[in-house]
């Protein structure tokens, strides 16, 4: 499961930004994940519960914002959200789709507690 490596990376990023912000505790982590990133939310949560122990992320809520794939036809410029793996253009039938949205994969923000 590559979610293990991914979760380690998330915790590393959050620890760094929490320290920069002078916060010792993080209450929420806002993630933006495109549907082309093949990441399973539940797996990230599973590893997170283990790996966050003893870090500022421990006990934080993981908030997943999913971004749906948006395709653009290279022939006619039509844009659409595909419903299957058939990416042929529904407007002109061309096989020249490019994903212009859906590959996002980043930590958007964190919520930190000050006391």
């Amino acid at each position: 499961m590559h979610e293990l490596a991914v979760t380690e990376s998330i915790i590393e990023i959050v620890s760094r930004h929490a320290a920069e912000a002078g916060a010792r505790k993080v209450s929420a982590i806002n993630l933006v994940i495109g549907d082309l990133s093949s990441i399973v939310d539940d797996s990230v949560q599973f590893y997170f519960d283990y790996l966050s122990e003893g870090t500022p992320s421990q006990g934080a809520r993981l908030v997943f914002s999913r971004v749906r794939v948006l395709l653009e036809c290279g022939a006619c410029g039509h844009q659409w959200e595909p419903r299957s793996a058939d990416w042929r253009c529904p407007a002109c039938g061309a096989s020249r789709a490019k994903a212009i949205r859906g590959r996002e994969f980043y930590v958007d923000s964190i919520e930190v507690e000050d006391r």
Partner: peptide, 9 residues
């Protein structure tokens, strides 16, 4: 408080 991060995983 909310701290912006915007860092690719």
């Amino acid at each position: 408080r909310r701290v912006p991060v915007i860092e690719r995983i």
